[in-house]
């Protein structure tokens, strides 16, 4: 028996525009002007990183002993370094290294940290204690010191820089996700899923992880900035990229001998690092205003 009266009751459809989370996000994000400009900058940087090697005006590795330490001019937009290599070309090629290193390190840290955070927050008890105390131990070292120690053990090189930056990212991600998980698991719909017989993995993946996404997105953008800075610092100290590579930190390091005579050799890679890190932080701030539920409600 199909009750027609009940069906009819809902015939009064409340009409409103179809809701879409993506559209909603974009509508709010458009209002964040600084973040919008920063995003355009980062998108351009990513494009340049990929097509850069094909469009650079000079070979970034080719020395030109007739044009050593030239200041910026129409010919060399960012001047030349101590071997006469075009700094502008080196910066463009170097952006690929900086972005790859930071993105892959943060991405790996994100995956491992999220899994650990979910497990820790969801199950609680001794599992939680072990994971969180381990994170505390990692937290007790300053980020860079920890990275230096890791590279010192593994030996210098780009891949080891990625591992080092990843390792010091894990505890931050784990702690963030654990906090969000503790909140999310109190939701009645999580209990509802349990009462339906959903497995732990399903509950974590379907009902808890989505609750952490907005906080993760904000944190990832901030973290990429930190990672770029850390990778450059390691290279600056000679623990990362090899000296002939056009990595921004390496360029900074090799230019410091000429700080008194040719400031631009240090200034140019410095500005590149500064702008990129700033852009990621601005995006992170903008995303926070849009996505963070604690701020959204005000």
């Amino acid at each position: 028996m199909q009750s027609s009266s009940l069906v009819k009751q809902d015939a009064i459809v409340v009409k409103h525009a179809k809701y879409s989370p993506v559209r909603e996000f974009w509508r709010a994000f458009k209002k964040q002007k600084a973040a919008l400009v920063a995003s355009i900058f980062i998108v351009l940087l990513i494009v340049i990183a990929f097509v850069g090697p094909y469009i650079v005006p000079y070979d970034p590795f080719e020395p030109d002993y007739n044009a050593i330490l030239q200041t910026p001019s129409a010919k060399h937009l960012a001047g030349t370094d101590e071997y006469g290599r075009d700094i502008f070309s080196r910066l463009i090629v170097g952006s690929k290294i900086s972005l790859t290193v930071s993105f892959s390190a943060v991405f790996l840290g994100l995956i491992l940290g999220t899994i650990l955070g979910l497990i820790s927050g969801y199950f609680g008890g001794w599992i939680d204690k072990i994971i969180m105390r381990t994170c505390d131990v990692l937290f007790s070292f300053p980020d860079l010191l920890l990275a230096i120690a890791i590279v010192a053990i593994l030996g210098p090189g780009i891949n080891n820089v990625i591992i080092a930056v990843m390792v010091f990212s894990i505890p931050s991600f784990a702690r963030l996700v654990r906090g969000a998980t503790l909140n999310a698991k109190e939701n009645v719909y999580v209990e509802a899923a349990k009462s339906m017989g959903a497995s732990h993995v399903r509950i974590m993946y379907k009902h808890i992880f989505p609750e952490t996404i907005s906080e993760l997105i904000i944190f990832v953008t901030m973290r990429v900035g930190t990672a770029i800075l850390a990778a450059s610092s390691l290279s600056f100290l000679g623990l990362g990229a090899s000296p002939e590579m056009p990595e921004w930190g390496v360029m900074l390091s090799s230019g410091r001998d000429y700080l008194g005579t040719a400031t631009h050799v240090v200034l140019m890679p410095g500005i590149a690092i500064f702008l990129t890190v700033l852009a990621f932080n601005l995006i992170g701030d903008g995303l926070r205003d849009v996505l963070d539920p604690k701020i959204k409600n005000n």
């Binding site: 809902d10 009064i12 409103h16």
Partner: peptide, 20 residues
């Protein structure tokens, strides 16, 4: 009473209770 209370953004014309 069938149906639901209309939302302030979507008030029906005429008597607000008419649809229910």
């Amino acid at each position: 009473i069938p149906g639901n209370v209309p939302s302030p953004q979507n008030m029906p014309q005429g008597c607000k209770f008419a649809p229910r």
